[in-house]
Computed example of a mutant assay.
Amino acid sequence: MAGLPQMLDKARRAILRKGVAVQDADDLVQEAFLRVEAFERTQTVKSPEALLIRTAVNLSFDMARRRKVAPFVDMGDDAGTARDHTPLPDEILRGQERLQRAAQGLERLPEKTRRILLSRRLDGKSFKEIAAAEGMTVAAVEKQVARATLELTKWMEAW
Rank of each mutant, 00 (worst) to 15 (best):
R101L: 07
A133L: 04
R114A: 08
E142F: 07
T42G: 13
T55R: 01
V138M: 09
F39S: 11
G124D: 02
A25N: 03
L51K: 07
E107I: 04
E91C: 03
A102F: 15
D90A: 05
D27G: 09
I116Y: 00
F72T: 10
R17Q: 14
R12S: 05
F61P: 10
L52Q: 01
V145N: 00
T55W: 01
A102R: 13
E129C: 00
T113W: 12
F39D: 15
A131W: 00
A25T: 11
G19H: 03
T81K: 12
L122F: 11
Q144V: 11
M75C: 06
R108A: 12
F33Q: 13
F127L: 09
S126T: 10
V20S: 12
D84Q: 04
R83K: 07
E111W: 08
I130E: 01
I15C: 00
T42H: 14
K18V: 04
T55V: 00
Q100V: 04
L93I: 09
G76M: 00
K128Y: 11
S119V: 06
V145Y: 05
R101I: 05
R66Q: 14
T42C: 09
R94N: 07
R17S: 12
L34T: 12
L59I: 05
I116G: 01
I116F: 02
Q100E: 14
G95N: 06
V45P: 02
E40A: 13
